[in-house]
Simulated assay, not measured.
Amino acid sequence: MSIITTPAWLLTGQSGTDSLEFTEAHELPPLGENDVLVRIHAASLNYRELLIAKGKFNLPFTPPVTPGSDGAGIILATGSSVTSFKKGDRIVTHLTVNTPENGATTFADINTGLGQKVDGTIRKYGVFDVSSVVGMPESLSFAEAATLTCSGLTAWNALFGIRGRGVGAGDVVLVQGTGGVSVAALQFALASGATVIATTSSDVKAERLKVLGAQHVINYRTTPNWGEVAKSLTPDNRGADVVVDVGGPSTVAQSLKAVRTDGLIALAGLLGVGTEANVPSIMDGLTYLCTTRGFLLGSRVQFREMNRFIDHKGIKPVVDEKVFSFQEVREAFEYVDAQKHFSKVVIEIE
């Protein structure tokens, strides 16, 4: 099947949404022997897309590039050397290109990945290296599956990334806020039989977290010592077995107070960069007798493990109530930037 151009959104600079431009005819590369041609049906946004569009942290990118790393769709054609997929298979994108099947993701991998150095997912058709796709969970819609690439996989790695220390029944997991990683971690933890403590700054969002199954919710604005409070909510005040920390500098001090002896703090994000004060040092792990683990995303092997778990447990990823059309990409970026969303913001590409 030959498709030469595609309707697409392009990031042409780093002036925020002003740098987003729509084109009806973005050129596609020819289908290589290790490539797949995909009809993309849905994409979702991450904080990463905002950072790239705003030029934050000197993130490199090659303009013009189609933004977005997260997407789900159907394979329309495969290259001559592709044996793991066929026409008609439903897939989800993996952010990286040509990384090891079961290797740890690095910053270099991300900086050369989808939506940054190579075209991403906010377009109707895409040619991707076969290493950048995995099979989609059978039980999910395209919109639901499009949330998994970064947030879902990061949450999975946070909870199950250390062999022999995966979360299970009787464990306590603490998640922070209502972003994609935190909500996915909440869902995975609950499906594994764990108790979940969640934090948020919004009473409205607190109610939504309770509806999802969080047994305890703490408002961190009205309870600045939320780490100690979270610890008091655990059996025998032992602390959380796993803390999924997405704030980084702004939250890790409280995460240390919440975690149990020999517990794990999964450093899953840097949302609090720029607001830090008195950030703990690596030696605080000795004071609190815990493990802090830095990691990025997850491997394709972990992605497939997660997808099997989703199908087996019947998990439905949470999509924000406001779903954007392909014509509303700028509005979708602005919605995420204003932090109006709950979990993941999805763009339907129909």
Results as ranks from 00 to 15, higher is better:
309 F>Y: 14
230 A>F: 05
259 V>A: 11
251 T>R: 05
183 V>I: 15
278 N>F: 08
123 R>E: 12
153 L>Q: 13
157 N>P: 01
343 S>I: 00
68 G>E: 00
200 T>K: 06
55 G>C: 06
99 T>Y: 00
239 G>Y: 03
121 T>G: 07
135 G>C: 03
43 A>W: 10
130 V>M: 05
121 T>C: 14
68 G>M: 09
16 G>V: 13
194 A>T: 05
249 P>Y: 06
69 S>H: 10
226 W>N: 03
36 V>N: 07
172 V>A: 05
65 V>T: 13
303 F>T: 11
177 G>I: 01
305 E>T: 13
258 A>D: 06
101 E>D: 13
197 I>K: 04
88 G>V: 03
97 V>T: 04
9 W>V: 10
297 L>C: 10
226 W>V: 01
196 V>W: 08
261 T>C: 08
35 D>M: 08
320 D>S: 05
106 T>M: 09
86 K>Y: 02
339 Q>N: 13
218 I>M: 02
51 L>S: 11
217 V>E: 05
125 Y>F: 15
292 T>C: 11
48 R>H: 15
255 S>T: 12
123 R>F: 08
264 L>I: 15
22 F>W: 14
348 E>V: 13
305 E>A: 15
325 S>H: 06
138 E>F: 04
125 Y>W: 13
281 S>C: 10
264 L>H: 12
84 S>H: 07
222 T>P: 03
185 A>I: 05
134 V>D: 09
147 T>S: 01
